[in-house]
Each structure stands twice: as structure tokens, then as C-alpha cells.
Design a protein around this nucleic acid. Structure first.
Lengths: 123, 123
DNA sequence: GTGCAAGTTGAACTTATGTTGAGGTCAAGC
DNA sequence: GCTTGACCTCAACATAAGTTCAACTTGCAC
């Protein structure tokens, strides 16, 4: 069975290893979504902390919060394993594209002479 | 022979495809270095625009200006082709490490159940 | 019903990465 | 010798990604 899934800001923060302020920030920017309880408090499910962890990984490889939120936006409300598998693949793919771009650009620059270097032997 | 190498902020900006303000910014943060002429103006050599181009690529894969400056700091003043080859390799290596980290972290997360997804079939 | 931890909002503050503008200098061309 | 363009510095602004603070509410325990 699915366990209790009614997490507070603090729960998600602890689970994701970030500050509660960051959790609110991510909600505001669409990385995670929350419903509200009677008293106006945010209610998250298990996916929230997970999304945040994934977002943090994505940031490390150069994606912005906006880009991450856009990727996550295409995700159905309660995405399953399949959809998350595709999301993971998309992130890895984007990171690979950037790495490939780094590689080819560096190679192109080197092709036209010594990268940034002074010519070793002038003649 | 080495050509004339006494470039102004504007020269470097044009060559690197950035605004002059960005060139000053990068100098301030140690990504590039400059000497000064009699009138206090910055004097760059050819490597400056190149360093900036490389820095821009590095930023795309998640390195900060500070990290880039630190990497570039290890470079001898007039680094040659060899040294720049190592720099390029270091950048690619760092990017690869981050990608690998993304991959393994995602894999680990998936190993412990459905990534962020709701359990497809609850039992 | 009092106390307390944890929640809420909004505004201000911080750091990173730059851009923009004001006020001033300097060399070149007319 | 005056204008023009490119440079200088310094300060303010802008956006991203958060944190911190003040003032207030909620919900649980006693």
C-alpha cells in the first residue's frame, strides 16, 4: 500500500536535505507543487523531496531552476516509474548534449591553432 | 612569429563575443588578466578572448566563474598548447564527473523503488 | 486556555553574474 | 583647440537562487 503522504514543508525539507525556505522557493517556481490544508498550510506528497533532489543534481550540470521547472511541468500530476524514467533520461540527455558541445567547441578551437596558448615555436 | 598582442577591452570583447563590461568583470574575477598601459588602460593578449570563450562553455556545464578562475589560475602566464590541452581535458573531465554523478545518483534513487513516481501497482 | 513548535506571508538581505549610466581622461582627427 | 570615440572608475540596477526576519496563525500537548 502507499503510505501516508501528507508532508509538510519541514518534512520535505528534511527529506530533501534543504532548508524549508528552499522548499517554498521551489514551489513558487514550479519545481514542486503543493495543495493546501484547511489552515492554508502546504501539503506535499513523497515526490516533492525526490523532485528537489533531482533538481539539485540537474543544477550541478548547468540547468537553471526555470529549465528544470519546465521539464517537470511536462510530467503528469502523479507520474509513474515510466514517466520518471523518461525524465531521468531527458536530464542525462541534456547533460550529454552540453558535454558534447563543450568537447566539440574545444576541439574546433584547438583545430584552428593552439587553443589559447602562445605558439610554442614561432617561425 | 607571434603577432601584435596589445588588445584593448573592446578588442577582446569583440573577439570573444561579449560586452566590454563582461571583459572587465572577468578580469576582476581572475578569469583573465591584464597589464596596464601608461594611461591606466587594460592591455590584454590573445589568450584573453580565448579564455572567455572557454569560460562560457564551462559555465554551460555548470561551473561557476569562481571555479573557472581557479582552474585558470593554475595556468602559467603564457601557457602553451600543451598546458591548454591539459586545461581542456580538465574541463571535460570535470563535466564528465558531474554527468557521471547525475547518472549514478539517478540510478541509486531508482534502485530504491520508483524514482519520484507513485507506485504503479500498490499491494 | 496556555504554551510551544512549526506553519504562513511579505520584505529585506545575500551572492553570483553581469549591464547601465554618470562623470572623467586621453589620443586622434579636423 | 574642439569634438569624438574608446577607455577609466564607481555606483546603481537587474535577474537568479536562496536565506533571514518580523508579524501572525495553527494545531498539538498539557
Amino acid at each position: 500500500m502507499t503510505h501516508a503522504i501528507a508532508l509538510t514543508v519541514g518534512d520535505v525539507a528534511r527529506a530533501a536535505g534543504v532548508a524549508p525556505s528552499a522548499v517554498r522557493f521551489y514551489e513558487k517556481h514550479g519545481v514542486i507543487t503543493a495543495t493546501r490544508d484547511g489552515g492554508g498550510r502546504r501539503v506535499f506528497d513523497d515526490s516533492a523531496s525526490c523532485r528537489i533532489k533531482v533538481a539539485k543534481l540537474a543544477q550541478r550540470v548547468g540547468l537553471t531552476v526555470r529549465e528544470i521547472a519546465e521539464l517537470f511541468a511536462d510530467l503528469s500530476p502523479s507520474a509513474g516509474t515510466q514517466e520518471w524514467g523518461r525524465m531521468a533520461a531527458a536530464l542525462v540527455g541534456e547533460s550529454e548534449r552540453r558535454l558534447a558541445d563543450l568537447r566539440t567547441s574545444l576541439a574546433e578551437m584547438q583545430a584552428g591553432g593552439p587553443l589559447c596558448g602562445v605558439v610554442d615555436r614561432l617561425g
